[in-house]
């Protein structure tokens, strides 16, 4: 390594100060200016994380939120060179390490995951759909993520969610290919089944109804699919060609 241990240590001490705010004396440093680095570095991280998780931030309040961001940033080694991706590491940190916080807010992991997936889908690389020559087939929007949650973080205000709401909820988040807007859809288990099958290959209406009939009778299947189709085609969750 061409770097001396001394220089290595000074750089490390400086970086650690920016992360933690704890300063170990470094020769030649203008001490009254060094705090600018801590401020700039922390604010950058704080702003990115705050923009990614507006609902969670509001839920916890500014003071708790700032402390949480500080705990994350001072203790973790951020791996992504892309700052827009860094909030994912924040979410993973909370789910892995902030167990006390999660016991207070039982739906916190679900909420963070939901907020993160909105970003991930908004930013994900474009994916083409290969339309087949056969007509009247349904295709799923490939710019999509499916998630299951224990709490209805997509249906109720975070502050109103309680232990009594615990259950099995399913959500899809997809990106409208024209507007770029990410939309979420609350899904029942039969439609999760439909979307998972559509992720494998395009299907005609008959095949979709067959999937739904595993759960409901034929008439109900037709009715619910008709309703779902109207919304899904309109918001580009599905395409029909």
């Amino acid at each position: 390594m061409p770097l001396s241990l001394k220089t290595f240590q000074y750089q490390t001490d400086f970086a650690n100060y920016c992360k933690t705010g704890i300063y170990n004396e470094i020769p030649g440093v203008i001490e009254k200016n060094i705090k600018q680095y801590r401020r700039l570095v922390f604010n950058n991280v704080y702003d990115s994380i705050s923009a990614a998780y507006p609902i969670t931030k509001k839920l916890l309040g500014k003071k708790k939120w700032k402390k949480l961001v500080h705990r994350f940033f001072s203790s973790q080694k951020i791996q992504s060179p892309q700052i827009w991706y860094m909030p994912k590491e924040f979410k993973d940190y909370i789910i892995d390490k902030e167990l006390k916080l999660q016991s207070k807010y039982v739906f916190l992991a679900d909420l963070l995951q939901f907020e993160w997936l909105e970003i991930e889908v908004f930013m994900m690389p474009d994916e083409a759909i290969e339309f087949l020559s056969e007509t009247n087939l349904y295709y799923i929007n490939p710019e999509i993520r499916l998630m299951s949650v224990e709490y209805p973080i997509h249906l109720k205000k975070a502050k109103k969610i309680t232990e009594k709401d615990k259950g099995n909820y399913f959500i899809s988040l997809h990106r409208n290919r024209e507007t770029g807007v990410v939309e979420f859809t609350n899904l029942s288990i039969p439609f999760v089944d439909v979307l998972e099958n559509l992720s494998e290959k395009s299907l005609n209406q008959k095949s979709i109804l067959n999937i739904l009939q595993k759960y409901v009778d034929e008439t109900t299947a037709k009715n619910v699919f008709y309703q779902f189709e109207q919304i899904a085609i309109n918001n580009q969750l599905l395409f029909k060609k």
Binding site: Q11, T12, F14, A15, N16, C18, K19, Y37, L40, V41, N44, V45, S48, Q76, K77, I78, Q79, S80, P81, I83, M86
Partner: peptide, 12 residues
């Protein structure tokens, strides 16, 4: 902008 394998997202 990276030290001890951790990104800091600023120009130190």
């Amino acid at each position: 902008s990276k030290c001890e394998n951790a990104h800091l997202f600023d120009l130190l």
